[in-house]
């Protein structure tokens, strides 16, 4: 048995080597770096240098506030929207279901840069289609990129557009795994379609919804592409800077790896804490 294990490990060795060097080691290394002052040469061990700065850094709290704001507003709206899309996709009345499924899933496979460029054009102040539409129904133009609130809204719209369909497909798969005869039994019990949704579909989908929420929470905690590309590096004036952007700014623009590592560990810890809290709140009560 020992020999067989050794053989297995020899086959796994190339993968384990790459995994260790490019995955395990950076995790350990960044943890160590987070306790080092990296703006000096040579780097020196100074536990309070980065972690102490984190506690009092307005930029960190701004990024944290923006990230949590997106998390609290965008994630529930997106999951609710995904649920509506999944219900519509699951409807027996729907024709060309495959086409819609593809259409809803397509945003995920579109290149991030391309989609960001299109969003910038669509929301452009002077020639964007969104402002033209607003004008056509008598509403004033919105300067999506120069004001903080519209910019945040734009980030949330973009992220929702990109990921709602993906979550809808996951929810749809969950819905289709609920046996049809459970609904038939409820129909015979005179339970209306709406009540069937709230009392049968939703409770039975709970594990799938929790899965979508956890994925979305982790995704939002790492949010980078949209504020980087659409609102130009978290603009206006850091109004849409997220923790992911702060990390990038500190690590790769200011080359302050120690502080960036501390931010990275804070992001991971927050994601874990929020996910655990959410799992605890939605746990199966027996």
């Amino acid at each position: 048995m020992r020999n067989r294990n050794a053989t297995a490990y020899r086959f796994l060795a190339p993968y384990l080597l790459i995994f260790s060097v490019f995955w395990v080691w950076p995790i350990i290394s960044s943890f160590i770096i987070s306790f080092q002052a990296t703006r000096t040469v040579p780097w020196r061990f100074a536990p309070g240098f980065n972690w102490g700065r984190l506690i009092g850094d307005p930029a960190f709290f701004n990024a944290l506030k923006n990230t949590l704001l997106i998390l609290v507003i965008q994630v529930p709206v997106m999951i609710a929207l995904a649920m509506v899309m999944a219900v519509l996709l699951n409807s027996p009345l729907l024709k060309a279901r495959g086409l819609y499924r593809f259409a809803f899933f397509a945003p995920v496979v579109v290149g991030e840069v391309a989609y960001s460029a299109v969003f910038r054009l669509m929301f452009s102040l002077d020639f964007g289609i969104v402002n033209k539409l607003l004008n056509s129904i008598g509403l004033p133009k919105i300067d999506w990129f120069s004001n903080v609130t519209p910019a945040m809204a734009l980030i949330m719209i973009a992220v929702t557009w990109r990921w709602a369909g993906y979550n809808a497909i996951i929810l749809l798969a969950g819905m289709q795994s609920i046996p049809e005869d459970v609904y038939e039994a409820a129909t015979l019990d005179r339970v209306s379609k709406l009540k069937q949704f709230f009392y049968i579909t939703l409770p039975l989908l709970k594990p799938v919804i929790v899965f979508c929420l956890v994925l979305s929470i982790i995704g939002t905690m790492q949010l980078f592409t949209e504020p980087f590309l659409i609102t130009e590096r978290g603009g206006p004036g850091g109004g849409t800077e997220t923790l992911g952007l702060l990390l990038y700014r500190q690590g790769f623009r200011s080359l302050n790896f120690g502080y960036a590592s501390a931010v990275a560990y804070t992001m991971a810890a927050l994601a874990i804490a929020i996910t655990l809290a959410q799992l605890w709140l939605t746990r199966e009560k027996q």
């Binding site: 046996p179 005869d181 005179r190 339970v191 209306s192 009540k195 039975l204 709970k206």
Partner: peptide, 24 residues
Amino acid sequence: MVFQSYALYPHMSVEQNLSFGLRM
């Protein structure tokens, strides 16, 4: 109707399964 697969509501207790239709 009694179904071949029982069609019980998996997330409800026996008592809730029996009373669900009447409660709703």
